[in-house]
Computed example of a mutant assay.
Amino acid sequence: MTATIHNYGCVLKEELPGLDMSSALTLLGDAITQQVLRALDGTGLRPGHGYVIQRLLTGPATATEIADDLGVSQQAVSKVFRELLSLGHIEVAAAGDDRRRRPMALTATGRHAVETARAARRRLDAQLREALGADRFDTTMAALRTALDALGLADRVRRRAVRPPDEA
């Protein structure tokens, strides 16, 4: 790290050499994820569950429907369904006359986890608003929305159909 030195020898600010925007956003996102997971401690939830849970906020859906929306395999979603069922966050929803169709829906426990995560994110937003000031926070949010749109993610965010990151 380098520092900007005032002419009286006082350090005004520390800079992060070579830190590009994508790295800064990745680091920030990872830190936020960790804080949200701490708020969800004891729920059994992990980051990969959130993509399926977000999709279920739009209503009950089958593994095939969610796989199509998220651009992942039906087997991957089925695995997450099994985990979420065993944790009590989802349940089989009424499917009408088609007994072969098994849509899943969030349980009260699942909805409570969503509210817990949202509360953690609101606290983080408040912390960042305090650190940045309201104007800079609002400007940053506008820039992030524009960046999501520029990268073709805005519509997927609106539909709650963001593809999970590929795991190595």
Rank of each mutant, 00 (worst) to 15 (best):
R38F: 06
R38W: 04
R38I: 08
R38Y: 06
A39M: 10
A39R: 11
A39Q: 12
L40I: 00
L40N: 07
L40S: 08
L40G: 02
L40Y: 01
D41P: 00
D41S: 10
G42F: 04
G42V: 04
G42D: 13
T43R: 02
G44P: 04
G44L: 06
L45W: 02
L45Y: 01
R46G: 11
R46W: 07
G48F: 01
G48R: 02
H49G: 03
H49E: 13
G50I: 01
Y51E: 13
Y51H: 10
Y51M: 11
V52C: 08
V52Q: 12
V52L: 15
I53Q: 00
I53A: 01
I53T: 01
Q54Y: 06
Q54F: 01
Q54A: 14
R55P: 03
R55C: 06
R55E: 13
L56H: 04
L56R: 02
L57G: 04
L57W: 05
L57V: 06
L57N: 08
T58S: 15
T58P: 09
T58A: 14
T58C: 13
G59E: 13
P60Q: 13
P60E: 15
P60S: 13
P60C: 08
A61V: 02
A61E: 12
T62Q: 12
A63K: 03
T64L: 14
T64G: 15
E65N: 08
E65F: 04
I66H: 07
I66Q: 10
I66V: 11
I66A: 07
I66M: 11
I66F: 00
A67F: 03
A67E: 12
A67V: 03
A67W: 05
D69F: 05
D69V: 00
D69I: 02
